[in-house]
Simulated scan of single mutants.
Amino acid sequence: MMKVIYYTKDNCSLCDDAKALLLMLQHDYPFELEERDIYTKDEWLEEYQLLIPYVQINQTTLNCEELNIGSLEKALKDNIHN
C-alpha cells in the first residue's frame, strides 16, 4: 500500500485543510497516512517549519505553496504503483 507522510503542527488551519483533502482523496486512492508533528523532532522542525503543511509521497513532495486538490491527486496517481 502507498504511504503518505504528512508534516503538520497543532493550531494550523492550512494543515487542517490539507488533512481534510488527504482524507477525502483516501477514498479514491487507498494509502496509509503517517502524520508527523514537526514539534516532536528537532530535525523536522528545522526542515519543515516554513513549509507545512508538507506532504511526501515516495519521491514526490508538496509544500504549503504547492498543496491543493489538483496537485495532491496528481501526486497520488503518479505514485499509486510505486
Rank of each mutant, 00 (worst) to 15 (best):
M1L: 06
V4H: 09
V4Q: 08
I5P: 00
I5Y: 00
Y6C: 06
Y6L: 02
Y6A: 05
Y7C: 01
T8C: 07
T8E: 09
D10R: 10
C12W: 10
S13K: 00
S13D: 00
C15Y: 03
C15S: 03
D17K: 14
D17Q: 05
A18T: 09
K19L: 15
K19V: 01
K19R: 15
A20Q: 13
A20F: 07
A20T: 15
L22M: 11
L22P: 08
L23D: 12
L23Q: 13
L25W: 07
Q26K: 15
Q26F: 12
Q26M: 14
H27Q: 14
H27K: 15
D28Q: 11
D28I: 00
D28A: 08
Y29I: 03
Y29V: 02
Y29C: 01
P30A: 12
F31H: 13
E32G: 01
L33E: 07
L33H: 07
L33M: 07
E34M: 10
E35W: 02
E35H: 02
R36F: 06
R36E: 11
D37T: 10
D37G: 02
I38T: 02
Y39K: 02
Y39T: 04
Y39D: 06
T40E: 13
K41F: 04
K41D: 05
E43T: 05
E43I: 02
L45A: 08
E46N: 11
E47G: 01
E47D: 15
Y48V: 01
Q49I: 10
L50R: 03
L50K: 03
L51Q: 11
I52N: 00
I52M: 00
I52D: 00
P53D: 12
P53M: 12
Y54T: 08
V55L: 02
Q56N: 12
Q56K: 13
I57K: 05
I57W: 12
I57M: 06
N58D: 13
Q59H: 11
T60V: 03
T60N: 03
T61M: 08
T61P: 05
E65G: 14
E66H: 11
E66A: 14
E66P: 04
L67E: 12
N68Y: 09
N68A: 05
N68L: 05
N68P: 04
I69T: 05
I69P: 02
I69C: 01
E73A: 15
K74P: 02
K74C: 06
A75E: 05
K77W: 13
K77R: 14
D78Y: 03
D78M: 09
N79P: 04
I80H: 10
H81N: 12
